[in-house]
Nucleic acid binder design. Structure first.
Length: 281
DNA sequence: AAGAGATGCAAAC
DNA sequence: TTTGCCTCTCTTC
């Protein structure tokens, strides 16, 4: 689940569970033990997310920085005094709630300066009200890299992952291999506006659904999606299966080490104007 | 029971 | 370009 919507969901949960009061901080695996000891018993101010980076703010401008990576999990549950199960690198607990971190790529104790340096490298986050859409457009407009690769670059847009990448391109009928510089500003503005709505919905439900009402299972009389992802999507992890819109077999390819999914009919191959003109003459 | 693969990314070659 | 993280679910035997 760890695309940007999920990290914002976790930040909200952490703030609700621990914000404004003292928290027990421990590291059952010992890997974060020295840092945990420094924070143990201190008050949590709040938690916040920027893209896929999660920050838990303590007094004195100290922050726990967490990045879940591909397989990391942060379970926030009622505190019933249960012992840690598996490799719990970080445990936050108060009388009511308990949060266990497992499998994360990063868990560090940071200063405010470190947090600011991290955030400065990130592109705009569609879930933040201060997001600067122009900053993303500048990067896209100046790049010959495929838009499918640019959308995954956290310095371009922070919070998009493999699901939102594939689904956003499908919804806007854009060839993932199309160079960023060939997009029109109006296309990017429409994609961004759509992304904000999709990710806000994902944040509210903690689940990625991108299928329009007319293509939902009930509307089309098809079976709902059943797998560990769960959300209703058009192309993500649907290789070889028929497109919900046109019936073509959904395609899969490797782009920069990640699986890319798209519909070859709904997202026709992009031809540059120069090439088209050359063929006409 | 065992293996593959996954919503990510940094570090190592 | 490949490996590591070290979890969890789904698939195959």
């Amino acid at each position: 689940m760890p695309e940007g919507h999920h990290l914002h969901f976790l930040a909200d949960q952490l703030t609700q569970a621990f914000g404004g009061g003292p928290v027990r901080v421990s590291s059952p695996t010992g890997r974060f033990e020295a840092e945990a000891a420094q924070l143990d018993g201190q008050s949590v101010e709040r938690a916040d997310a920027w893209g896929k980076q999660l920050f838990v703010e303590f007094a004195d401008e100290r922050y726990i920085h967490i990045h879940l990576g591909l397989i990391g999990k942060l379970d926030i549950v009622d505190n019933l005094g249960q012992p840690p199960v598996g490799q719990v690198r970080l445990r936050l607990a108060n009388e009511r709630r308990l949060a266990d971190l497992r499998g994360a790529t990063a868990c560090d104790l940071w200063t405010r300066a470190q947090v600011e340096a991290c955030v400065a490298k990130l592109g705009p986050d569609p879930l933040r009200p201060d997001a600067d859409v122009d900053r993303a457009w500048t990067r896209i407009h100046r790049s010959t890299k495929p838009i499918g690769a640019l959308l995954m670059d956290q310095a371009v847009v922070a919070g998009i992952g493999n699901v939102y990448r594939a689904e956003l391109l499908f919804r806007h009928r854009i060839d993932p291999m199309r160079p960023g510089a060939t997009l029109r500003r109006s296309q990017w503005d429409a994609m961004w506006a759509d992304l904000v709505v999709l990710m806000q919905d994902g944040f509210a439900k903690n689940r990625i659904d991108t299928v329009r009402p007319e293509h939902m299972p009930e509307a089309m009389g098809r079976d709902p999606r059943v797998d560990d992802h769960g959300g209703e999507v058009y192309v993500y992890r649907r290789a070889q299966m028929p497109c919900h819109v046109c019936g073509s077999a959904v395609r899969i390819a490797d782009l920069e080490g990640r699986n890319l999914f798209w519909c070859p009919t709904c997202q026709p191959k992009f031809r540059s104007r120069a090439r088209t003109d050359a063929l006409r003459t």
